[in-house]
Each structure stands twice: as C-alpha cells, then as structure tokens.
C-alpha cells in the first residue's frame, strides 16, 4: 500500500524542502519507488535542491489542468532511478490547485509508487492545506525556537481536524517530529530550546534531530540532496530518520555536544 507523507511546518525557512528532498532520496535509496511533489506553486524550489531545474518541461499545474500527462511531467532523478520529482509551476499561484485535481494525481501516483512525499509550502493557506489533506503520515519540521514550535503546534491542530482522514473519521494521520538546525552548544548556553523543551510543548514522536550544518547549504547550492553526503552530520541524521521511519531502531544522535577534545581545539568543519 502506498503511503503519502507530507513534510510540513507552518513556519517558513525551517527546512521543509531540504527535508523533502533528503527523505525522498533516502526512501528511494532503500529500494522504494518514491515520488516527491513540490506544492509550493509560485515559489518552487524543490527542483533546485534536487538539481533538476534544467529538465523541467511540464509541472504539477499542467497535469491538474490536463495539459500534460503525469508521465510527461515526472522527472526521473539523475542519482537514483527509483526517485521521481513532480515540480511546481513558477508562473501560477496556489489557486491553480484544486482538491479534486490533487486527489486525482495522488490516486494515480499511488498505483505506481510506494511513497509519495509532499513538500508543503509555508503558512496554513490553500497550498499547505492541499499538501497535507490526503496525507497518511506527517513529518513536522521544527526549529528549536518558540515561534517555530508554536506554528508547528498550529499545523498539528490542522492535521488533526482538517485532513481527509479527520473528515472521514479514519485513523488519524501519524505525526512525527523532525527537529532541524539544532545546535547543542547553543542549547547549552540557553540560546536555543532543547529537545526536551520542544517535546514538552509538542509531545510528538521524535523521528530525529538534524544538526545545524554547513553541509546543508553546500548540498542546496550543488543541487544534491544532503542525504547523499554520507560523511556529513546532516546527511547521517537524515539517513537515521529514514531508517527509523522504516522501522529500524537507531539511537538518537546529534542531541548532545559531543565534540572531541581535538576537534574542540582545532575547530570543527
């Protein structure tokens, strides 16, 4: 049975698209045929992060309007042949999406794919609503600061009351917390909320902590999902997250400040 995962947050700039790209790649690398959809119509970014921006012919809105077939619009990833990207339209706005149209595309994708990752736009308006409406699982990406946590809480409320599963009284969406841009040393100084502080407010199942890392910016600039950078801390954090989501039991990392003596002395990368 295919599963639809929404990557959402409420707040912007917390790492939704980075996360969507990384986990979609991670799931495909594990042998699951995966599609990742950019719901941020008008502000598309996923194609850049995935490094396929120069191969975009048709987009999500074209498929909804019947101007292209799904197969024409899906772009196969250059690093992994089990991963496909459905880019957003840059020239339209979110009103071009309709619930019926999105539902139809997702139904069609479900026949062929194991996982469908929906990269939600920021906010709680139409685009974000449609991205989460059909979801089975939600990855709530949160930064360790109060406004991000509150926006995530608001989004969790919407997941619990406005989704298709909520409306049809089905089993609720499974919600997972991904704490991104985490810096243990700043937590220690009291400049950042700790994992426990965030969990105290959200009480969610923690899927993983992604450390603040230069590798994320480098990955974005080069158009390769950070999970492919296996040496980087953020890449490893996403690999852990995908493994945990698939049922593996891996201990949490990157929560404590565990820099070794020499790395402290010479500074870390």
């Amino acid at each position: 049975m295919a599963r639809i995962i929404v990557v959402t947050s409420g707040k912007g700039g917390v790492g939704k698209t980075t996360t969507s790209a990384a986990i979609a790649m991670g799931l495909a690398k594990k042998g699951h045929k995966t599609a990742v959809i950019d719901f941020d119509v008008g502000l598309r970014n996923l194609d850049l992060i995935m490094g396929c921006e120069r191969r975009v012919v048709y987009d999500f809105v074209n498929v909804i309007n019947g101007e292209a077939t799904l197969n024409q619009a899906l772009i196969r990833d250059k690093n992994c042949n089990l991963l496909y990207i459905l880019p957003a339209s840059q020239t339209r706005d979110k009103d071009a999406l309709s619930q019926e149209g999105v539902g139809k595309i997702l139904d069609e994708l479900k026949k062929d794919f194991k996982y469908i990752v929906c990269d939600s736009p920021a906010g709680i308006e139409k685009g974000a609503h449609l991205a989460m409406y059909f979801a089975d699982d939600a990855f709530v990406v949160t930064n360790p600061e109060v406004s991000s946590v509150r926006d995530s809480d608001r989004m969790l409320g919407i997941l619990a009351s406005k989704s298709r599963r909520a409306e049809q009284n089905e089993e609720p969406i499974k919600e997972y917390l991904l704490l991104s841009r985490y810096a243990p040393d700043r937590v220690k100084l009291g400049e950042m909320l700790s994992v426990d502080d965030v969990q105290d407010i959200l009480s969610l199942h923690l899927l993983g902590v992604i450390p603040e890392s230069k590798s994320v910016l480098n990955a974005s600039n080069s158009g390769t999902p950070v999970i492919l950078d296996e040496k980087s801390d953020a890449g490893q954090a996403y690999a852990d997250i995908v493994a945990r989501y698939l049922g593996e039991n891996r201990p949490h990392r990157f929560i404590d400040d565990k820099k070794g003596f020499f790395r402290k002395l010479f500074g870390s990368k």
Partner: peptide, 8 residues
C-alpha cells in the same frame, strides 16, 4: 484524549 493544538 487527543492534544488540543494551537488554533483549535
């Protein structure tokens, strides 16, 4: 029995 989230 479910959490009441912000905005609910």
């Amino acid at each position: 029995t479910q959490p009441i989230r912000s905005g609910q």
